[in-house]
Design a protein around this nucleic acid. Structure first.
Lengths: 113, 113
DNA sequence: TTGACACATTCCTTTATGGGTATATGATTT
DNA sequence: AAATCATATACCCATAAAGGAATGTGTCAA
């Protein structure tokens, strides 16, 4: 089997730095493709392809405006990532010694049995 | 060029659901490989390979204990993901998006007529 | 209608993935 | 020393990525 498609979910879509950049730009407001092309310094087809991925996982939405296509951010799918991360938030704030202590305690409990 | 290596950063490493599962399991405490093999229902080589990726991006650390290798979580690299997400946290809570979406939809309907 | 513009899609190439299977390495027990 | 256990690595396969280049599609202007 190969790696999961980039369009599988937000996790995969966002693993590509260029696509993160695009989202960052769209976070400031709606933009047509050519704007993104210039701002990213990428070729237009690559931008369109990245946008396709982002569309498929619904991280962006499009709206036709004349011959332009206005892309806007839809942050909702990012929530799934955030939700997964939530259980780790505490941990990196805690000192490692603290983690060690916790783990040591767990081990002692096991050994007592 | 091909897709970025899974070992490039936490974003790429964590895009694979199996690796997320492994981290979730290790969040509960240190574990030897065979534990993970059983819990995941995967073949041992695949687990070892996933662990290799996680090691390379420093999401896990290893410790030798007899003939076992105890893996433990190191949540630190997840922080970069969380940091990137932070600027979006506000957004999916806000109602503006919903309103904007509605307005955009209305506009498209108009255009269709 | 023709041409220019904005964007999307297709084809090509290189590279890496993840699972399967077999085998290597290293520590422990007998 | 040999057998065994725990884990890592190597090899094969099918798949798909991302960038480059070329071309297709739809819209507006002259």
């Amino acid at each position: 089997m190969a790696r999961a498609a980039t369009t599988t979910d937000a996790f995969n879509a966002v693993a590509e730095p260029r696509r993160r950049q695009i989202l960052d730009l769209l976070a400031q407001g709606e933009r047509p493709v050519n704007d993104l092309v210039e701002l990213l310094g990428l070729a237009q087809p690559q931008v369109s392809k990245h946008l396709r991925v982002l569309r498929e996982v619904e991280l962006v939405q499009v709206r036709d405006e004349g011959r332009q296509r206005m892309y806007r951010l839809n942050p909702e799918p990012l929530r799934s990532i955030h939700d997964w991360l939530r259980k780790y938030e505490q941990m990196w704030a805690a000192r490692f010694d603290a983690l060690d202590t916790v783990l040591a305690d767990l081990k002692e409990e096991e050994d007592d049995e």
